[in-house]
Design a protein around this nucleic acid. Structure first.
Length: 917
RNA sequence: GCCGAGGUGGCGGAAUUGGUAUACGCGUAGGUCUCAAAAACCUAUGGUAGCAAUAUCAUGAGGGUUCGAUUCCCUCCCUCGGCACCA
């Protein structure tokens, strides 16, 4: 089609005029919610990766519509983010304006590429009517005690001037800019307790149809392990009543615990360093040792996470001067300090079993600590050591730790000698629970989610801080280490206003006491709109640019009415995408209360009615009930852990809050991950490499349909593929042939009014096409769906007979999801005008035409294909007839002569195997 | 190290899940058209032997189960993706 540009323009106009009727989701009928991850609208426009993944979604959406489903296929903009902010800073423009320009460019490009999105439901995370809800969700997290403010060391990127979540630091580098100098900084942060949902996030996966690798990625990320917490008494005057608690997955090795190690950040370390000198004199710790500890802890703090893990081979550490008591051997074991123990995992302290843990082993070797074997790899140890503890405490013969769990047998462990590790483990937990020295416990790799960002272009965190209230609460509760408030402390607090407030809002008073002085912005004042500031630059002090907006920051305390301040941090990028799949379902209601434009510069806004929140988020909301869950969620592998986990968490949180329908506890039913397209040189596309393929440019040269079909034909939808213009030319040839063939058929049909019925052969070809294409699309195997159409076309061209109108229509319909323009143009060539081909219904397969009239069947002897027989399809189901035909064939004699025929194995329609000896 | 996915022609990749291995496309060779080239179209195209029919070998390597294995089982090698001093 040389004039594809004209055709594209023509149909774009037509579709634009009939958009709602063609692609708008209705609210009844069997539903299909097909979702592509919404893009970040960057200034460089839609790239080929977007085009690839959206085409995949679009093909499926168009297919399901033709199958008669009520399809929701929405699109929106995840528009908060640093690139826009940086661009705005550089160009001295408002991020709002830049975003508006970018989204309109994206939208135009998407329309050209014929993506059948339902634009009536478009959402934008930077729209105040949208982020009002993002803020509302945060308030709910706060009220339920799942969001709290803590001063804590966070990862600070000196280039971005922003705090990063643990997840955003990859190999010690900033995930955004690649800066390797991410350091720890103590900053007061909002933290969201996603860890409370760790179990639910694992369990929920069972009900989903995610591919294995996605499930595994989620499970590994959460990293649940089973074991025990064990308390070791400390043998020292100052810590007489204290216990050092550890988490271990191997309580069965308790007898082999010959020393303990705490992380440099562990509380015990600061307690040692802060001890009064008299106490030190009483204990055995010398000033010299204190100095060593100080130096070591300082050194560890200065190291970045990267350095800590990189230097993993050589263990470092320092003796704390303290001893603990092993609760089963009752021996004194030394407590060491080392940075190979992570403060953020478990309890930040371990019991070291050098004989059966490689890291402990390395550490013991380096510092000459005792090693006791408690598991033998010998199934029948000759000296069972019944009920006797070994006297020798070093076994220097060992080369490495014996870490086997499935094999081996417990020794030197009087209470569970002779048991296999797994049995011993059960016994050990039983014992420590009975004796009150520990409990069965679980530990997770998943960390709590640091939710504050010190930037302008994000959702303002809707919280207010009152210094006055804070002082008052703090004067009544002593809480030096920012621990969670205990029940017994609450009784000390007398604050009528606070109690009343908590009762009214249904908030546990502990939540307010844990965050002294912090209150949510009253719901009727949402959204807290981003004010227009003069300068968007992030600051070195770690404060958000919003903090300079004194007018905006100043507000009233919702409790005492005194002067208070707004939170000036904004939310991380993930916040807006946590619930957007819900927003699409209720998009119309969200828009009912459109905020004034331009956004208010003051925080309080008045355009919201009080009850609109419960109105939208409620378990009886019909739209949510009807559309959820997302039936197919298409996205990139890079979001298989973070975004997927965060949004599942938020969904589950809202579910527990009771504002979502009870039947659906997971937001996404199926997750499809799309692949990646590499540049023609086989490398990842990047401007610096100059290997970027721009969809617009390719579409200008070959047409949109060629781009779409080529992308779908390149390979499996989830594969990594290399852009190859030669293959694209092959797809173009196919589309041209398809177009010409059908065009000719339509013309022939017009001239020739009394066409005879097409032959069975034609019907078989066409029905095989319908059957194959349908099955392949349903399984997202777009490459083979197109291959089947190519094959069908080749076959039809070889036969060279006239097709009926119905058959021609079928051929157009089959290609319609892939090539919307070409097929629409062909559809328009019939005399009788009909609606768009994209509103037609998918052809039905006539199963009686899936088999050729003449069947060629391979005959194999002992499983090796030797000759073939031809027969009518009616004979196919008659086994005796098939065998008879096989025996009549000359090949039979050749291959069976002089041999005994054991038996015949006939697989209907597939093959006949003759077993001979 | 752990978890996951893979390994099929010169290349991208098919194979109805145990039943004709290499569909479809690219590339290559030859041909048609042309003054010529491009485009388009036609034919051939896994290796080896043979004029040929045909035979034989071949799905990372080696074993096994089976009438029959790219597919299932065991051992090993390699590639890609995720996690990683996680106790």
């Amino acid at each position: 089609m040389s004039d594809f540009k004209k055709i594209e323009k023509k149909w774009q106009k037509y579709w634009e005029e009939n958009w709602a009727e063609m692609y708008g989701a209705r609210d009844k009928g069997p539903k299909k919610y097909i979702l592509n991850e919404f893009p970040y609208p960057s200034g460089s426009g839609l790239h080929i990766g977007h085009t690839f993944s959206f085409t995949g979604g679009d093909v499926y959406a168009r297919f399901r519509r033709m199958k008669g489903d009520n399809v929701l296929f929405p699109m929106g903009w995840d528009a908060f983010g640093l690139p826009t902010e940086n661009y705005a800073i550089k160009m001295k423009r408002k991020p709002q304006e830049v975003t508006a320009e970018n989204t309109s460019m994206f939208k135009k490009q998407m329309k050209r590429l014929a993506f059948s999105f339902d634009w009536a439901r478009e959402v934008n995370t930077t729209d105040p009517s949208y982020y009002k809800w993002t803020q509302w969700i945060f308030i709910k997290l706060f009220e339920k005690g799942l969001a709290f403010k803590r001063e804590m060391p966070i990862n600070w990127c000196p280039s971005c001037k922003i705090g990063l979540a643990n997840e955003e630091v990859v190999d010690g580098k900033c995930e955004r800019c690649g800066d390797p100098n991410v350091v720890k900084r103590n900053i007061s942060q909002w933290v969201v307790k996603i860890t409370d949902y760790a179990d639910k996030l694992i369990e929920g996966l069972e009900g989903t149809d995610f591919v294995e690798k996605v499930k595994m990625a989620q499970i590994n990320w959460i990293g649940k392990s089973e074991g025990a917490r064990i308390r070791f008494k400390i043998k020292d005057l100052r810590f007489k009543n204290k216990a050092l608690e550890v988490f271990t997955t191997r309580p069965d090795t308790l007898y082999g615990a010959t020393f303990m190690v705490v992380a440099p950040e562990h509380d015990l370390v600061s307690e040692i360093l802060n001890s009064k000198s008299e106490a030190l004199n009483k204990s055995k710790i010398s000033n010299n040792q204190i100095q060593n500890i100080k130096e070591y802890v300082e050194g560890a703090r200065k190291k970045t996470d990267m350095e800590r893990t990189e230097l993993s081979k050589e263990k470092t550490g320092v003796f704390s001067g303290l001893y603990a008591i092993n609760p089963v051997t009752e021996k004194e074991i030394p407590i060491w300090i080392s940075d190979f123990v992570l403060a953020s995992y478990g309890t930040g302290a371990i019991m070291a079993v050098p004989a059966h843990d490689q890291r402990d082993f390395d550490f013991a070797k380096k510092f000459g600590l005792p090693i006791i074997e408690v598991i033998s790899n010998d199934q029948n140890p000759s000296t069972p050591n019944n009920n006797q503890l070994p006297n020798t405490n070093t076994q220097m013969g060992l080369k490495e730790a014996y870490t086997e769990v499935d094999n081996g047998i417990s020794i030197n462990s009087p209470l569970w000698n002779g048991l296999k590790p797994k049995e011993a483990l059960v016994k050990a937990i039983e014992y420590i629970e009975k004796e009150g020295i520990g409990d069965k416990a679980y530990s997770y790799h998943l960390r709590d989610w640091i939710f504050s960002r010190q930037h302008y272009w994000g959702e303002p965190i809707p919280m207010i801080f009152c210094q006055h209230c804070c002082q008052k609460i703090k004067s009544q509760i002593t809480n030096p280490n920012n621990q969670t408030i205990r029940n017994d402390q609450i009784s000390n607090v007398s604050n009528k206003k606070l109690e009343k407030y908590a009762k009214e809002k249904g908030i546990d008073i502990k939540v307010l006491l844990n965050n002294p002085g912090w209150y949510p912005v009253p719901e009727e004042q949402l959204p807290v709109v981003l004010p227009e500031v003069e300068a968007y630059e992030p600051t070195d002090t770690g404060e958000s640019p919003l903090s300079n907006m004194t007018n905006w920051v100043k507000t009233k305390c919702p409790i005492c009415g005194g002067e208070a301040k707004r939170e000036t941090d904004t939310m991380p990028n993930w916040a807006g995408s946590d619930w957007y799949f819900l927003a699409y379902c209720i998009a119309e209601k969200l828009k009912e209360k459109t905020p004034p434009s331009p956004p208010l510069t003051r925080g309080e806004s008045s355009f919201d009615s009080k009850n609109v929140f419960t109105d939208i988020f409620s378990s009886s909301n019909k739209e949510l009930k009807y559309w959820m869950p997302v039936d197919v969620y298409i996205g990139g592998d890079e979001h298989n852990t973070l975004h997927l986990l965060y949004s599942r968490f938020i969904y589950k949180f809202l579910y527990d809050l009771g504002v979502l329908t009870k039947e659906i506890s997971e937001p996404y039913y199926k997750r499809i991950s799309h692949g990646v397209i590499l540049g023609p040189d086989g490398a990842r596309m990047s401007k610096s490499r100059g290997n970027v393929i721009v969809p617009e440019v390719v579409a200008d040269r070959y047409g949109v349909d060629v781009v779409r079909c080529y992308l779908m034909f390149m390979g499996p939808y989830d594969a990594t593929m290399v852009w190859n213009e030669k293959t694209l030319m092959g797809v173009r040839r196919f589309l041209d042939k398809y177009f010409q063939f059908i065009q000719k058929q339509i013309l022939d049909n017009k001239q020739n009014t009394n066409l005879s019925d097409s032959s069975r052969d034609v019907k078989v070809i066409i029905n095989k096409m319908i059957d194959g294409v349908e099955r392949d699309i349903e399984n997202f195997k777009y490459n083979t769906a197109l291959a089947k159409m190519m094959e069908g076309l080749n076959n039809l061209r070889n036969i060279n007979v006239g097709l009926s109108i119905e058959e021609i229509k079928t051929l157009i319909k089959l290609l319609a999801p892939f090539a919307p323009y070409t097929t629409e143009e062909l559809w328009d060539m019939f005399d009788k005008k009909e609606k768009s081909v994209h509103q037609s219904s998918w052809p039905e397969v006539d199963k009686s035409f899936l088999v050729d009239s003449q069947v060629t069947l391979p005959v194999s002897i002992n499983g090796k294909r030797r000759y073939e027989i031809k027969m009518n399809r009616d004979d196919m189901s008659n086994e005796e007839r098939v065998i008879q035909l096989a025996r009549e064939e000359s090949g039979f004699k050749k291959w069976t002569e002089g041999k005994n025929i054991e038996r015949y194995i006939y697989v209907e329609g597939r093959m006949l195997n003759i077993v001979v000896i």
